[in-house]
Measured scan of single mutants.
Amino acid sequence: EESVKIVRLVKNKEPLGATIRRDEHSGAVVVARIMRGGAADRSGLVHVGDELREVNGIAVLHKRPDEISQILAQSQGSITLKIIPATQE
């Protein structure tokens, strides 16, 4: 059973501070990098390897990473992410 986590981040004009990529094996959209000091890093709630399912209620599974980045870039104020946390080894 996948544990889905709802994360709310507050982002002003600054970038979210995370990059995403598509996992070639599973097809999932995952967090590739977290930039120090960005909104994602400061929240402490988003981690490399987390699978991104939704951004502000928009399912991202069938979107290209550049489309998802665009949605994230255009979002201001509160951003709600639905993520499946990376499995902690």
Rank of each mutant, 00 (worst) to 15 (best):
Val4Asp: 09
Val4Gly: 10
Val7Phe: 06
Arg8Trp: 04
Arg8Ala: 06
Arg8Asp: 06
Arg8Met: 07
Leu9Met: 09
Val10Lys: 13
Lys11Ile: 15
Asn12Thr: 13
Asn12Pro: 09
Lys13Ile: 07
Lys13Ser: 12
Leu16Asp: 02
Gly17Ser: 03
Ala18Arg: 00
Ala18Phe: 15
Thr19Asn: 06
Ile20Tyr: 06
Arg22Trp: 10
Arg22Thr: 11
Asp23His: 09
His25Gly: 12
His25Arg: 13
Gly27Lys: 09
Ala28Asp: 04
Val29Arg: 03
Val29Glu: 03
Val29Gln: 09
Val30Glu: 05
Val30Gly: 01
Val31Trp: 02
Val31Met: 05
Arg33Lys: 15
Arg33Met: 07
Ile34Lys: 04
Ile34Ala: 02
Met35Ala: 14
Met35Pro: 04
Ala39Phe: 11
Ala39Lys: 06
Ala40Gly: 01
Ala40Ser: 03
Asp41Gly: 06
Asp41Arg: 03
Arg42Ile: 08
Ser43Ile: 01
Ser43Val: 01
Gly44Lys: 08
Leu45Gly: 08
His47Thr: 07
His47Pro: 01
Val48Phe: 02
Val48Ala: 09
Val48Gly: 02
Val48Leu: 06
Asp50Thr: 03
Leu52Cys: 01
Arg53Tyr: 06
Glu54Val: 02
Glu54Gly: 03
Glu54Cys: 05
Glu54Met: 04
Val55Tyr: 02
Asn56Thr: 02
Asn56Trp: 00
Gly57Phe: 01
Val60Ser: 03
Leu61Lys: 15
Leu61Tyr: 15
His62Glu: 14
Arg64Ile: 03
Arg64Gln: 14
Arg64Glu: 15
Arg64Met: 11
Arg64Val: 04
Pro65Ala: 15
Pro65Val: 15
Pro65Leu: 14
Asp66His: 12
Asp66Ile: 09
Glu67Ile: 05
Glu67Ala: 07
Glu67Pro: 01
Glu67Tyr: 07
Ser69Phe: 08
Gln70Met: 10
Ile71Met: 14
Leu72Trp: 07
Leu72Asn: 03
Leu72Ile: 14
Leu72Cys: 10
Gly77Pro: 07
Ser78Arg: 10
Ile79Asn: 05
Ile79Ala: 07
Thr80Lys: 11
Thr80Pro: 04
Lys82Cys: 05
Ile83Asn: 04
Ile84Cys: 11
Ile84Asn: 08
Ile84Thr: 07
Ile84Pro: 03
Pro85Thr: 07
Pro85Cys: 06
Ala86Met: 09
Ala86Leu: 08
Thr87Tyr: 10
Thr87Trp: 08
Thr87His: 13
Thr87Phe: 10
Glu89Phe: 08
Glu89Trp: 09
Glu89Leu: 10
